[in-house]
Design a binder for these strands. Structure first.
Lengths: 195, 195
DNA sequence: GATGATTTCTAGCAACGCTAGATACCAGAG
DNA sequence: CTCTGGTATCTAGCGTTGCTAGAAATCATC
């Protein structure tokens, strides 16, 4: 019994090691630099070991994405609970969103741009993912107008943030006016007469 | 003289052939299926010929992107000139935007998501690109409120559309409520009391 | 028809994700 | 302590990718 559990523990530890190494490598040099060979060398094992833990490179990226979502949700939660009015809350969460995306581009890509096969808009979506969306949702709820759907408005806000971030990061939008664009988006989402 | 011009003409024709083949292949099977070998085989030349025309695969994709931008701008222009009120115009252009993105995913990716080294938010940006942005800009201009910058609001609208399209296409947002989200975005951009 | 430049192709490099088959390891039985 | 069976790991290699050097073929000109 003990021998079995020790092995399982070591296996789990190595799996965490793989995900951490992939994350560090990606954050340091981008996903293009994350190859199975480099990853294997980094964890001091051979390539096939990776495939005994994950179905492929995509699954490793998905694991990194889930881990990233947890951090992401935590940062948004902190921003949300530290804010005052409804408008301030929406701005704080939006700011946390774009700040995270700019500080952790590789993580953000794994979560929201690259093709990783993670279930998203379904109940089977990973908890961290639903939690991150939940933070956005709670920030949006107070500013939902009569006859509007909270979920849909949250998705629309998300899309706005995502668009701003990705277009800016790929050089399609200039960096400098980012804060003004973000303010415009938020200003137009908040109904007139809201505190 | 004539012999030189004939060669240049043939060269230009072959270059168009390459771009067209790349575009067709990408639209039919996605950019993942566009390899230099398949492309070369399709135009009935060997691979190195591609590199005598373009610096690499990225440059070919950039050429396809520019061509796509021209079509894109034309469709948005048609939608814009066919609409009535300011609100209708904004909605028509937004609809044309998302429709194009959904109908030509590969083209859209080359233009707005994949990393192609094209100058964007600068005067050196390709004409087709600036023209496409100009269509958006003209649709936005009538609804710009006092104290707002037209360019910045256009960029924000663009970001919203881009976010909706990319999140939906990657499975992060469910397809079915797309029209409602688009309506929400437009409804919040148009100032109250606008026709 | 020979010559010299230009164009095009053949063949190959290094790197990629991934995997089959060989090898090393190690817990438990005699 | 030795042997055995099963597991864990590695070596080696497949097929593919973007890209390129050097050989071969083509063609205008003398």
């Amino acid at each position: 019994m003990t021998i079995q559990t020790r092995r399982e523990r070591e296996r789990a530890e190595r799996e965490r090691l793989i995900v951490t190494a992939a994350r560090e490598l990606a954050e340091a040099e981008g996903w293009g630099a994350v190859t199975t060979r480099r990853l294997a060398h980094r964890i001091e094992y051979s390539q096939p070991v990776l495939y005994s833990h994950f179905k492929g490179k995509g699954a490793i990226m998905a694991a990194v994405a889930v881990q990233g979502c947890a951090d992401f949700a935590a940062e948004m939660r902190a921003a949300r609970t530290g804010a005052g009015s409804a408008r301030e809350t929406l701005a704080a969460v939006g700011g946390a969103y774009t700040t995270f995306a700019r500080r952790h581009p590789a993580l953000y890509d794994a979560m929201f741009t690259l093709a990783v096969d993670l279930p998203f808009a379904t109940p089977e979506a990973p908890a961290a993912l639903r939690e991150a969306f939940g933070e956005l949702l709670q920030a949006v709820r107070p500013i939902v107008a009569e006859g509007e759907d909270t979920g849909l408005l949250t998705e629309t806000y998300w899309a706005g943030l995502h668009g701003l971030v990705t277009l800016m990061r790929s050089g399609r939008l200039p960096e400098e006016a980012h804060e003004q664009r973000l303010a415009l988006l938020i200003g137009h989402l908040v109904p007139p007469g809201t505190n």
